[in-house]
Structures are given as structure tokens and as C-alpha cells.
């Protein structure tokens, strides 16, 4: 075999690996919806919701409980990541990277602000004030924000074909959740907070990806991601949870009550799925770019519906089959792209 053919083969292997990581991300993200949904009906969160709803209303109760659940989620994610980095022998590299704040680690801490409080909280606000389907659809828009930012800001190449694939996957997501959105738009109250939340989710995750891409240029993905979750833990546990406690919400009372076996088990399951979904997300970016990585990651909507069907027995309606077909079509458009265009992900 000649050199050019070998080079092409090596290159195709790299792209395939990138897509594989992104696909794992979508599966794990979809899987995360199981513990992510179940945890709400477990104590102490169920009781906490009741107590806050009685005083401040349902929408507010949902957002405040979401803060505590998200904070615990971040905590179990960082535990999972510490085990992961330990197994890979990357603590040394982590120490070296964290010291390079200005050129490197500041990007990961910045990413944690957009991915943590802005995107996740926004998504819960959309859920609480409008509805779950609206929140899911709003979040699906994030690869558009991510790929446009990455291309304008640091010239990441995104082919027309990849963009078409992202568009199809988004259209598929809309079809999956679309019917629910129409019902929800008729029912909600304090809607503007929900719309704001939807906007926060779409822009937050998109911006997170683009910023992380900048840091990942010169850092190890596993290490960069751990720093990003270190940042998120600081934001929740050192800033937001104490501030809410000072404002009079019973944060610490319920945080201490979370240490019961079933709740912990579900939280750990959430931490593992969410943590590794992020590991694979960050690993895909350097190999196929932020736009493609996020586009394939968006298949989480489809996987979530499948897993919820398998585990909870919620039978999906026909719109989901149409949406799923669109998602598959969009992924095929991206997977089958000629990879020679992608030898370098940046334009000269």
C-alpha cells in the first residue's frame, strides 16, 4: 500500500474514533435521563419540593430543588472523574494543567459557568415554567450556537454537509418533542421565565462547547473536563447553595438528608452516566470538531426516548418514529462525509 493510502486510512480511523466518542456521548446522555427523572420522586427532594411549593409556588420550588439536585449531580460526577483520571494515571497532568490558569485552565472554568448554572439551570427553568418537552426542544438548538461560534471565533471548518446533518438531527428532535410543546405552550404560567430558561439552555451549552474547544487545543480532554467540573462544584456548593440558604431556602437541611441508600444509589448512577457522557463529548471535539461532536451528541433525544420506553414502559407515539428516522438520516449524512476534507479541522 502506498503512503497516501496509508495516510488516508490513518486519518479515517481518527474521524471514526471521534464519531464513536460522540455517539457514546449521546447514548450515555440518554441513559442519564433515567436517574435524572427518578431522583425527583425520591426523598428528600420530593419533600423539599412540597415544602418550598407551599411557600413560594410550584415554579420556584422546581428551580430551587433543581439547584440542589444539580449540585449533587456535579458532586457525583467529579467523584467518577477522579476515579477515571486516577485509573488513567493523569493526576500529574492535572496538576500541571491547573497551574496554567491564564493560557489554559481559565477556559475550563469559564466553560463550567456556561455549562453549569446557565445551561442546566436554564433547562430546569424551561421545564418548570413551560414543560419538559419545551425544555428538550430548546436544548436541541445548542449545536447551532456551538458550531457557529467555533467557526466565527477560531475558524473551525464546518462543511455544508455536516451542517445539513446537524439540521436534520435538530428537525428530528423537534418532531420527537413537538406535540408536547404545543400542549405546554397553552398551559404554563409565568411563561417568560421558561422561555428565558430555554434560551439559557441553548446558548449555554453551545458557548460551553466553543469555549472548551479553545482550552482543549492545548490540554488533555480528561484533565480539562475534570477542571470544568471542579469549577461547577465550586459554583454550586460554595456560591449558589449557600446564597439560597441565606435567602431562607432549606438547602442544607435537605442536603444532609440526601444520604440515604436509594437516593445515593440513584445519584451515583446519574454521576457516572453524566460524567462519562461529558468525557466522551470532550474527547470527540479535538477529533471531529465542536460542531460535529455536538450534532451527534444531539441524538441523546432519541436515546432518551428509547431508554424511557425500555425502563419505564412509556410507549412512544408515531411522531417519535418520524423524528427518530430524521435523526438517523442526519447522522448518516454526517458519518458518510468524505473525510479527506477533515484532515485539519481549522482553516488556514
Amino acid at each position: 500500500m502506498d503512503l497516501q493510502a496509508l495516510k488516508k486510512q490513518e486519518h479515517q480511523r481518527r474521524v471514526k474514533k471521534g464519531y464513536m466518542w460522540a455517539l457514546f456521548c449521546a447514548v450515555l446522555w440518554g441513559l442519564w435521563y433515567l436517574p435524572g427523572t427518578a431522583v425527583w420522586v425520591l426523598n428528600p427532594f420530593d419533600e423539599m419540593y412540597g415544602e418550598i411549593a407551599a411557600g413560594s409556588g410550584d415554579g420556584m420550588a422546581l428551580v430551587i430543588v433543581a439547584v440542589l439536585i444539580t449540585a449533587f449531580n456535579a458532586l457525583t460526577v467529579i467523584l467518577a472523574l477522579m476515579v477515571w483520571n486516577g485509573a488513567l494515571g493523569k493526576f500529574g497532568e492535572m496538576k500541571r494543567t491547573i497551574k496554567e490558569f491564564k493560557p489554559c485552565s481559565k477556559w475550563f472554568f469559564l466553560a463550567s459557568i456556561f455549562g453549569g448554572p446557565i445551561a442546566i439551570l436554564g433547562s430546569f427553568m424551561a421545564m418548570g415554567f413551560v414543560g419538559g418537552a419545551f425544555a428538550a426542544v430548546a436544548a436541541l438548538m445548542y449545536p447551532v450556537v456551538g458550531s457557529i461560534l467555533a467557526s466565527k471565533w477560531y475558524g473551525e471548518k464546518i462543511s455544508r454537509r455536516a451542517f445539513a446533518g446537524i439540521g436534520l438531527i435538530i428537525a428530528g428532535g423537534f418532531t420527537i418533542f413537538g406535540g408536547g410543546v404545543l400542549t405546554e405552550l397553552g398551559n404554563g404560567n409565568v411563561m417568560w421565565l421558561g422561555y428565558l430558561g430555554g434560551l439559557m439552555a441553548a446558548t449555554g451549552w453551545g458557548i460551553e462547547g466553543a469555549i472548551a474547544g479553545k482550552g482543549l487545543d492545548i490540554a488533555e480532554p480528561d484533565v480539562g473536563l475534570t477542571l470544568r467540573f471542579l469549577g461547577e462544584n465550586i459554583i454550586w456548593w460554595i456560591i449558589i447553595v449557600p446564597v439560597l440558604a441565606i435567602m431562607g431556602f432549606p438547602m442544607f437541611k435537605y442536603a444532609l438528608l440526601a444520604f440515604e441508600p436509594l437516593t445515593l444509589l440513584v445519584l451515583v448512577f446519574a454521576g457516572i452516566t453524566f460524567g462519562f457522557c461529558y468525557v466522551t463529548w470532550y474527547k470527540s471535539f479535538p477529533l471531529i470538531g465542536v460542531g460535529r461532536g455536538q450534532g451527534i451528541g444531539n441524538l441523546y433525544g432519541l436515546f432518551a426516548v428509547i431508554f424511557i420506553f425500555l425502563f419505564f414502559g412509556d410507549v412512544p407515539s408515531w411522531t417519535i418514529l418520524v423524528g427518530g428516522a430524521l435523526c438517523l438520516l442526519g447522522s448518516t449524512v454526517m458519518f458518510s462525509e468524505d473525510t479527506s476534507e477533515m484532515e485539519s479541522l481549522r482553516g488556514d
Partner: peptide, 18 residues
């Protein structure tokens, strides 16, 4: 790490051999 740097457009190969 080297492959990621090349894919990110920071390194490029000028010579290849088996």
C-alpha cells in the same frame, strides 16, 4: 496528544514514512 494537536490545526506533517 500529538494526533489531537495535528487535528486541531496546530501541527502539520511535512514528511511521512512507514
Amino acid at each position: 496528544d500529538i494526533i489531537e494537536l495535528a487535528s486541531g490545526g496546530m501541527l502539520k506533517d511535512v514528511e511521512v514514512k512507514v
